[in-house]
Structure formats: C-alpha cells, structure tokens
Write a protein that binds this DNA or RNA. Structure first.
Lengths: 145, 145
DNA sequence: CTACCAATTCAAGTCGACTTGAGGTCAAGA
DNA sequence: TCTTGACCTCAAGTCGACTTGAATTGGTAG
C-alpha cells in the first residue's frame, strides 16, 4: 500500500497543504503516521477529501461533515438526522434550480428591469416558497397587516 | 403605495434589520427615502430580499448578486457571464444530488465504514467527477475567457 | 558529517457577511 | 413640552475556514 506525503495529496486533490492539516486538526481525516515530522497518508485520504469538498460545496460546515461521515467512517448521527439533511439538500436543489432558471431568463429578457417582468416575478415567487418561517422571533405582531 | 419601515420589512422577511442595512450599504437594494432618520422601503424590497436570500443560499457573494440583479434591476453583466453562472449552478445541483444520495445511503447502509461500502464509493466517484482542474499549480495554460 | 529544504508547529492575520455596542436623533404620544 | 423608544451611524467584534509567517525539525543528497 502506497503512502502519500502531504504535498502529493495536495497536488492530486488541488487542496492546499494547510487546508489538509486544518482538516486533520479538526478531526475530519487521519494520517497513518509520520516519517520524522512529516505526515503520511493512505490512499483513502483522497476519497475523504473528495467527500469533504463535496460537503463544503453543499454548504455544510466542517463540524457537520465530521458528524455525518467522521474520519473513521461511522456516522455518529441518527438516521433521522441524516434524512433531515438529505431533505434540506432537496430543498436547496429546488432553490438552486429556480435561481438558475431566473438567471437564464435574465440573460434573454428584454424588460427594463427584472421586477417588471412577470415571468421573473413568477420565478421568484416559486423560488421563495417555504420562506414562511416565523423568524424564531416568535412574537406574532405581524398579524396586523 | 404603502411604505414599510425597516422593522416591518424585517418581520415580514425574517431578515435582521442590521442585515437589511448592510445590503443597502452594499448597494443591493435602495430605500425610497427617509422619515426623519428612518428608512422607508417600497414593497418591491421584499422581492429584492427574496432574491438576495436565494442567491446567498446558492453560494453567491453579495457582490456577485449585485452584478447579476442590481438594485435597479438591470444586469450590468454579459449574457455569456450569466449563462456561465447558470452552468455553475447546474454543476452544483449535480453535486448536491450526489451528496444527497450518499447521505440517504449512509442512513441505511450497514457496512462498518462508508469507504468499505462499494455503493458509497461509487456514489463518491460520481460526485467528484469534473474535479480534474489543474490547481493553478499545474501552470498549464488555463483556457481563460 | 553537514548542508539543504520540504514539512512542521503555533500564533496571528484575512475575508465575507453580518452582529453588537455606544452614543445620537427625532416623530409621536402623554 | 417633554419623554420615549425605535432607528440611526460608525467602529469594532465575531465566526468559520483557511492562509501566512517565523522559527524549528529531521530525512536525504553530496
């Protein structure tokens, strides 16, 4: 089994060595040992890093990613919680799709301003459904509208 | 036409007043005027804020959002650039979908560690296609435009 | 053996997006 | 008229995710 040093991992993944050290420090991955001071990684670190990158682009924090996939690979998190995260992703995907549609529309729309374009406004409305949370501010004085 | 003060906007959108001020300062939205010191907003601010929120959850910076949709509603950005953003979104959507699939799988998988699960590894591989960028370290001529 | 130099540690800095706090203003109600 | 209190401004602080820099270490080539 071939061991990689940090610069090799860095080159193969396009992730800065400092970031890799940062992930290790945060407990998202583990080095197999050291040669002198230098970290040695097994090849699985490449997958772990791909996973971290994926999680980051999905907007998860490093702590959440560790919760979900730990360096050891056991999720220390309930199925229920995982499914909730997946549901969040589904919602996010819907949002992204609306935004994409809006952007594509803006690229061709001739209306003087987006907000005057009925199609744009419709897309906006679709994209912002489910924004009806009550702010945690709880106190409903907004009822007087 | 009904004018809203900042606290009303804040309540209706669940966005902190400080954030709304911040957006105005950054040029993402415009207040119609003041009553004394207090900002007054037209109802269109609600749509603008929805748009900002949408853009933020898609991972765009405030500067990018302003470029794309400005407070005045004219995109000061080329069609080409907009379409590139839309393409980015499409790619991001694909990433998110893979991650969602992985999470749903993790929630039911019985393998001792994800990395030992062939299905998981396959999903990972799918999710990390197109990660083959040349890091800028590659000093290959990056096809710019 | 010694010099070299990539890697290491640790503290401090950066960046974006806000939030917080101190001190000031003013429209409206008592 | 006076008092509130919601808003205001501006500076500084926070948070997460890294990056940067200075000082140190230790395999490896000569």
């Amino acid at each position: 089994m071939k061991l990689l040093d940090i610069s090799e991992v860095s080159h193969q993944t396009c992730i800065a060595a400092s970031a890799i050290r940062h992930y290790e420090e945060k407990g998202l991955l583990t080095s197999l040992g050291r040669r002198g001071l230098k970290r040695l990684f097994g090849p699985e670190v490449l997958d772990q890093l791909a996973l971290i990158t994926l999680g980051r682009t999905a907007g998860f924090s490093l702590d959440e990613i560790r919760e979900m996939f730990g360096p050891d690979g056991r999720p220390d998190i309930s199925r229920e919680k995982l499914n909730r995260k997946a549901d969040d992703l589904d919602e996010q995907i819907r949002h992204l799709a609306s935004l994409r549609d809006m952007i594509r529309h803006v690229a061709v729309c001739t209306a003087p301003s987006h907000m005057e374009c009925p199609r744009f406004r419709k897309l906006l409305r679709v994209g912002s459904r489910s924004r009806t949370k009550n702010c945690a501010a709880g106190r409903q004085k907004a009822l007087r509208s």
